[in-house]
Design a protein around this nucleic acid. Structure first.
Length: 561
RNA sequence: GCGCUCGUAGCUCAGCUGGAUAGAGCAUCAGACUACGAAUCUGAGGGCCGGGAGUUCGAAUCUCUCCGAGCGCGCCA
């Protein structure tokens, strides 16, 4: 509908230019927006004000000329008014609004989707937790946001690859192996023999026990049996990584998050990609040696200081495989790559991009794109729960799902802009009541399903769009619903473009609210079969849209609660 | 000290990428079920959009500068 208005204005402008009524000849961007106040109509256009300077005319005068040239071929306009400093306000006819509902019936589960992405490839990397412990609440937020961004992109016509980067090499993994080994030998934290910076969590004990018991672990395509030998550090490392990966996989499965590709950091070394990337950087002259280390001149690419690539002990710093990894992404044909990660890793952005530029591989400057989510603070019993992996005290994603449920957990994580910090009050989320907006939305869905059941018992079927008497709709409550329904595709498109899943959660709350208001004021099933049919059809559209919206969030739409 | 993010009602947060008179939920107060699910609805109060300056027809939104919060600033990942 918004698009129809945009075309209406655009064509009007063209005609004005064609016959000289407007002289500047510069086509301005036509912005159509929804006014904040209802008396300003359904849509407003500010183009007359934007053109005032170029045209050297008063905005209202331009608006009046333009309005004369607009031709409402589809018969959607109720009225056009010029208001305020020069806004053109459009009011859409109720009948035209109601016609948009036909699209919902026709599209069904696809309502809200678009082809904006044109089938182009996009890769989204998210979670990418180190296999050194269970997923915590921060990973949960990343999983929910990343997964929903994938769903949004897929819904708007992108060919999405979901990827998990697996840090199975490097110092943290060595540290993990040492920690498990210590537990195998019965050494506890605090013991002088306990490894420095060892992982102290209880789960390390579980890994050790399982290893000593020679259990077999299946993770992805790996099957690793515990060797049971506490002196075989390499075997312990392989087993621990597989064990913890299996735990993470199970958590993600429970959370309904799936990946297409698990990319192993270790493969970058075995395939020589790290060496190749380093050599290329050296050849391109962006490196230098100092203090027995190899440095990358990242300051040439906007970093505030240069970074060490190869330490004096010969090993690489973490960002080197990161650069090699992203080069591999580029070579795999992903012109668009989005990395979803915690804001505590934001400093890697400059470094990775700098490294990629220094490779001189034709990679655009702003590539890859990043979505950073801010930290999650966990509250329990009115107290903040401190998260410390080393000390082993933190709220895991699994704990959360067990306590709060998958739907509420996902919805809570998605309710806020990724940019803002999130306070996850476990006690609050556990209350399955008003506090939880997810129940509000789901309740609307269940309530409508119940109405349908009731109608069916009375032998009243939900009519098709063609046979429904749509002209019978027209109350303020009904029209509010219709207009919201019509805007769903734009909301999805906007959320996908901005990587902002929270827009969907707000939309769904609003749609549910508009239904609840309608419901409390109007009866659906009445003696007037024509009106009942039209309202049932309207509610069928609401159910459809609630379901599609919830699906984008990975939240279920129950028929009974 | 430097960088990133944020600062909007008592609390938790939106604000459609610069629009008209600032928006929800919770909390508070006052109301609504002898018919489709009261996990709901209707109404009221509540604001220096952190402070100041600038950009322009127009700023919560863009720029600068202070103040405050979180995160990052290692030859850790």
């Amino acid at each position: 509908m918004k698009e129809s208005v945009r075309i209406l204005v655009g064509e009007g402008l063209e005609r004005c230019f064609a016959d000289g009524s407007l002289s500047s000849g510069v086509m301005p961007p036509v912005v159509i927006e929804k006014p904040a106040h209802e008396e300003h109509g359904d849509f407003a256009c500010n183009v007359a004000m934007a053109m005032a300077k170029a045209e050297r005319k008063a905005p209202r005068q331009i608006a009046e000329t333009l309005v004369k040239y607009m031709e409402d071929r589809d018969g959607i306009i109720e009225s056009i008014e010029i208001a305020g400093p020069g806004f053109i306000n459009f009011r859409i006819a109720n009948a035209a609004w109601c016609r948009t509902l036909g699209a919902i019936e026709a599209a069904g589960a696809d309502y809200g989707t678009s082809r904006a992405g044109g089938g182009s490839k996009v890769q989204v990397e998210f979670v990418s937790a180190n296999p050194t412990g269970p997923l915590h609440i921060g990973h949960g937020r990343g999983a929910a946001i990343g997964d929903t961004i994938c769903r949004l992109l897929a819904a708007t016509g992108w060919d999405v690859t979901r990827e998990f980067y697996y840090n199975d090499a490097g110092a943290q993994i060595a540290n993990l192996a040492l920690s498990v080994q210590a537990r195998c030998l019965g050494i506890e934290p605090g013991d002088p023999r306990w490894p420095a910076d060892g992982y102290q969590g209880e789960y390390i004990k579980d890994v050790a026990r399982s290893y000593l018991d020679r259990e077999t672990v299946d993770a992805g395509d790996q099957h690793v049996a515990g060797a049971g030998d506490p002196n075989d550090l390499d075997a312990i490392r392989r087993f621990a990584v597989a064990y913890l990966r299996r735990e993470q996989d199970q958590d993600l499965l429970t959370f309904d998050v799936h990946f297409d590709v698990y990319f192993l950091e270790s493969s970058l070394y075995t395939e020589g990609r790290v060496e190749a990337a380093v050599n290329r950087l050296i050849e391109n002259g962006h490196t230098y040696e100092q203090d027995d280390a190899l440095w990358l001149r990242t300051t040439d690419f906007g970093d505030d200081k240069d970074r060490v690539m190869r330490k004096s002990d010969g090993s690489y710093t973490y960002f080197v495989p990161d650069v090699a990894y992203h080069l591999a992404k580029w070579e795999r044909g992903f012109v668009r790559v989005i990395n979803e990660q915690g804001a505590d890793h934001h400093s890697t952005i400059t470094r990775v991009r700098a490294g990629l530029q220094a490779l001189n591989a034709g990679i655009p400057q702003g590539w890859p794109e990043y979505v950073l989510h801010q930290m999650v603070t966990v509250m329990r019993g009115g107290e903040e729960v401190k998260i410390s992996k080393r000390a082993g005290s933190y709220v895991t994603l699994r704990d959360l799902i067990d306590e709060v449920g998958r739907d509420a957990t996902r919805f809570f994580f998605l309710m806020r802009k990724p940019d803002s910090q999130l306070v996850f009050d476990i006690d609050l989320a556990k209350q399955q009541s008003l506090e939880n907006p997810v129940y509000y939305v789901q309740y609307a869905h269940a309530r409508i399903c119940s109405i349908f059941e009731n109608a069916a018992e009375k032998g009243i079927a939900v009519p098709s769009f063609a046979s429904a008497a749509m002209e019978r709709l027209g109350t303020a409550e009904e029209m509010a619903i219709v207009k919201l329904l019509a805007s769903f595709p734009e909301v999805v498109e906007g959320a996908a473009q901005a990587f902002e899943p929270h827009r969907i959660t707000y939309y769904l709350q609003e749609l549910a609210g508009s239904f609840h208001s309608f419901y409390n004021k109007n009866r659906v099933i009445t003696e007037d079969m024509e009106l009942a049919g039209a309202r049932l059809f309207l509610l069928a559209c609401v159910v459809r849209t609630l379901k599609n919206g919830l699906a984008l969030l990975g939240v279920s739409a129950p028929e009974k609660m």
